[in-house]
Design a protein around this nucleic acid. Structure first.
Length: 170
DNA sequence: GACAGATGAAGGA
DNA sequence: TCCTTCATCTGTC
């Protein structure tokens, strides 16, 4: 089993949306983390922002506003998932394949990555997802279309799913 | 090695 | 339906 590697994002930039200010953090590989409004104090990096990061940030901002409007993101910046284990990256990739307005169950994700019994571990990997919204962990529901949980807060999961026209049970 | 966890399924009320 | 219990698998400490 691989332990997660701790890769320190080098640049933190705010993203203003109608729903509050998200915090995006970039490493040299791409977008590393995305924090919901109010989750962490707004922090702007003192490091110089390269042209490349500015381009990624522009894509992230557009993608975020698209998803928050219930639309599919046209283009995503490169996502730095190096902080996750192999298992977690498999789960996150499977979640990225879920289209806007569609949902999957934890068990379905588990089957998709070839580990049908690892449903609880899939839940754990969802919770460890550093880039919520863009890696759509909100589209993963528990059995019988129940909500399950959400690292950013269950109210965010409800809000995001409602934007995509997905009806869920409390 | 023990424990916790964003689950699933089965059984009973 | 709802609740409880147990089985299962992975990540973290």
């Amino acid at each position: 089993m691989l332990k997660s590697k701790t890769v320190q994002p080098s640049i933190r930039l705010p993203i203003e949306t109608d729903h509050g200010t998200f915090q995006a953090a970039y490493s040299h590989n791409g977008l590393a983390t995305l924090d919901f409004p109010g989750r962490k104090p707004a922090a702007s990096s003192s490091a110089e922002v390269s042209k490349e990061v500015r381009q990624w940030h522009k894509l992230t901002t557009r993608a975020l506003s698209a998803v928050l409007s219930g639309r599919a993101a046209a283009k995503l910046p490169p996502l730095d998932m190096s902080a996750g284990t192999d298992f977690q990256r498999q789960v996150w990739r499977a979640m990225q394949r879920i289209r806007t307005g569609q949902t999957r169950g934890y068990a379905e994700i588990a089957r998709e990555i070839g580990r049908p019994k690892a449903v609880r571990a899939v839940g754990g990997a969802c919770g460890a997802n550093p880039i919520p919204v863009l890696v759509p962990c909100h589209r993963v529901l528990a059995a019988n279309r129940r909500l399950g949980g959400f690292s950013g807060g269950i109210e965010w999961k409800i809000k995001l799913l409602a934007r995509e026209g997905v009806a869920v049970r409390a």
